[in-house]
Write a protein that binds this DNA or RNA. Structure first.
Lengths: 114, 114
DNA sequence: CCGATCGTCAACCACCTGGTTGAATATGCT
DNA sequence: AGCATATTCAACCAGGTGGTTGACGATCGG
């Protein structure tokens, strides 16, 4: 009884549930990148980053196109839209309320000061 | 050097990456529910649902309050708001508060920030 | 007090995840 | 051709996840 959309959301949310992968997505906001360049800032093997990129591609969050030796990674925002649509189905809050987010962090972790 | 916001998003997205847990959240939109009632529609043991509810509570997506024998589960939309804000930070939907977004990115992944 | 109900705990299982290393493949450069 | 670069593959490992079952403690109703 689990729908196709369900399974798609599974992999999208699972892909987003890792800080390394979220950081990669943020990096790709800037521009398309080769795998090696994606891996550069991380204290982690290239193979590990390669696997993270496959997870992101399987979720549809990025696409990968090989040109010559270099595999270029490109952000694909449509997949994220599916997640947003699901979350907004709750419809109980303003879609982009940064103040609310700040309050959320402050209330949740009052002991942590930057 | 993963930030607090990072780890919070980890558990929120991981909690959302399961169809049973997303279904539970949708059920809780309607009203607060006891654990047994949450479990009723699922073809799964009560213990399994109990564990799912703990995952949701650890993510802050629900709260649980025990009154007598019955443990009541209540939706907590603030945690979901954090996920929404992160996703919409990609700016494909609404105009952004760029100042807040930069602060958010710096907090999200300090070591790759410019 | 007794028996039913609510929910968790503990042990166990199969499978998945995120990481490593070293070898392999494919392409580009000179 | 020969070497360097880009990326993946394969095997492995530790720990996490999602499920089960059975026993257990707590609480309610009669």
């Amino acid at each position: 009884m689990t729908s196709v959309a369900d399974r798609k959301l599974d992999v999208i949310f699972a892909a987003l549930a890792d800080p390394t992968r979220r950081a990669i997505l943020i990096m790709l906001l800037e521009d398309d990148m080769a795998v090696t360049d994606v891996a550069a800032p991380f204290d982690m093997s290239l193979a590990a980053i390669s696997k993270h990129l496959i997870v992101l591609a399987d979720a549809g969050l990025i696409s990968q196109e090989k040109r010559g030796r270099v595999k270029w990674c490109k952000l694909e925002p449509d997949a994220m839209r599916a997640a947003t649509v699901w979350i907004q189905g709750f419809g109980q809050f303003d879609p982009l309320d940064f103040d609310a987010f700040e309050r959320f962090l402050a209330n949740e972790f009052p002991q942590v000061s930057p």
